[in-house]
C-alpha cells in the first residue's frame, strides 16, 4: 500500500467508527418506530416519521425559531464584528491588549455564558434588570416577545469576537498599495471602505459567515441555560426540539427524522450561500 493511504488509515478507521456508522444508524433509525419506552416493539414504518415531523407544528415552529435565530445572530455579529475590526485596526495604543479582551468570550463554555446572562438578566435578582429598573425601564428579558431576541443577543456577545478575529486578520493581510492609491486619488473614507476594503475582504467574509451560520444552527446551551424553550415554545430551537423528542419523550425515530431534515436544510443553505458568493465575486 502506498504511504499516502497508510497515513490516512487511522483517521479513516476512527471516523468510520464514530461518524459513518452512527450516521448510517441514524438514517436507519429515521425509518423505524423506535421508542426507548417500548424497546421490544421497534419496527420499520417507512416514511411515517418524516411525514409526522414535517407536518408537526412543533417541528415547524422550532425550525422557524432556529432560522430566525441564525439569521438575526449572524447578521448582527457580521455588522458588529466588521465595525469593531475597523475600529481596532485604527487603534494606535494597546491594540494587542484590547484585541485579547474583546476575543475572550469566544473561548469560554457556552453553558457558562448562558448561565451568566440567565442571572444577570433575571427579573428578580439580575444586576442588569435592577439598574434598568432604577432608570425606570422594565425589560422582561425572558418573557414573551423578548426571549428569542435575548438568546440572539447572548449569542452575539459570545460570537461577535469570532467575526472580529477573522476580519482583523483579513484586514491586516490586505495589501497597502490600493489604500495609498485611493488616498492619492482623494477617495473619502466611505468610498475607500465600500470600493476597496469590502470587496477585498469578501472571501474572508463569506468563509466567516458560513462557519458562523453552521455553528449557530447547533444552538442548544443558551436555551438550556435560560428558557428551556419557553415561554410556551417561543425559544425551542431545532437542537432543543430533537433533544426533547429523543431524550424527554424517548421517540428516537422521530428525532432521527428531524435531524436528517435539519441536515437537508443546512445543505441547501450552504449551497445557496456558496453559489451566491461566487456570483457576487464574478460580478465584482
Amino acid at each position: 500500500m502506498h504511504l499516502k493511504y497508510k497515513m490516512i488509515v487511522p483517521l479513516v478507521l476512527v471516523l468510520s467508527a464514530i461518524m459513518l456508522y452512527p450516521l448510517a444508524f441514524s438514517g436507519w433509525l429515521s425509518f423505524q418506530d423506535y421508542r426507548l419506552t417500548r424497546i421490544d416493539e421497534v419496527h420499520p414504518v417507512g416514511l411515517e416519521n418524516y411525514r409526522f415531523v414535517a407536518t408537526d407544528p412543533a417541528f415547524l415552529n422550532a425550525m422557524r425559531n432556529t432560522l430566525t435565530f441564525v439569521f438575526g445572530a449572524v447578521t448582527l455579529e457580521l455588522i458588529l464584528g466588521l465595525s469593531l475590526a475597523l475600529l481596532v485596526q485604527r487603534l494606535r495604543i494597546m491594540r494587542g491588549f484590547v484585541r485579547s479582551i474583546l476575543l475572550a468570550p469566544m473561548f469560554i463554555t457556552p453553558i457558562a455564558v448562558g448561565l451568566m446572562f440567565r442571572f444577570l438578566l433575571s427579573s428578580e435578582i439580575g444586576v442588569v434588570s435592577h439598574y434598568l429598573g432604577l432608570l425606570g425601564l422594565s425589560v422582561d428579558w425572558f418573557g414573551p416577545q423578548m426571549a428569542l431576541l435575548t438568546i440572539i443577543l447572548i449569542d452575539v456577545w459570545q460570537w461577535t469576537p469570532f467575526m472580529l478575529l477573522m476580519f482583523l486578520a483579513g484586514l491586516e493581510a490586505l495589501p497597502k498599495a490600493p489604500f495609498e492609491a485611493a488616498r492619492v486619488d482623494g477617495a473619502g473614507p466611505w468610498l475607500t471602505f465600500s470600493r476597496i476594503t469590502l470587496p477585498m475582504l469578501m472571501p474572508v467574509i463569506v468563509v466567516a459567515l458560513i462557519i458562523r451560520a453552521l455553528d449557530a444552527f447547533k444552538v442548544f446551551e443558551y436555551v438550556f441555560a435560560t428558557t428551556r424553550g419557553g415561554p410556551g415554545d417561543q425559544t425551542v430551537t431545532i437542537m432543543y426540539f430533537i433533544y426533547q423528542t429523543g431524550f424527554r419523550f424517548f421517540r428516537m425515530g422521530e428525532a432521527a427524522a428531524a435531524a436528517v431534515m435539519l441536515i437537508a436544510v443546512i445543505l441547501v443553505l450552504v449551497v445557496a450561500l456558496v453559489k451566491f458568493s461566487k456570483i457576487d465575486r464574478s460580478k465584482g
Binding site: L23, F25, I242, A259
Partner: peptide, 23 residues
C-alpha cells in the same frame, strides 16, 4: 477529502447523539 473533513467538522451533533446514546 479536505471537504469531507470540513463536512465532518460541521456535522450537527443532533444526528450523531441518537446512535451514540443507543449504542
Amino acid at each position: 477529502a479536505r471537504y469531507g473533513i470540513l463536512g465532518a467538522e460541521m456535522m450537527p451533533p443532533a444526528i450523531l447523539i441518537l446512535p451514540f446514546f443507543l449504542l
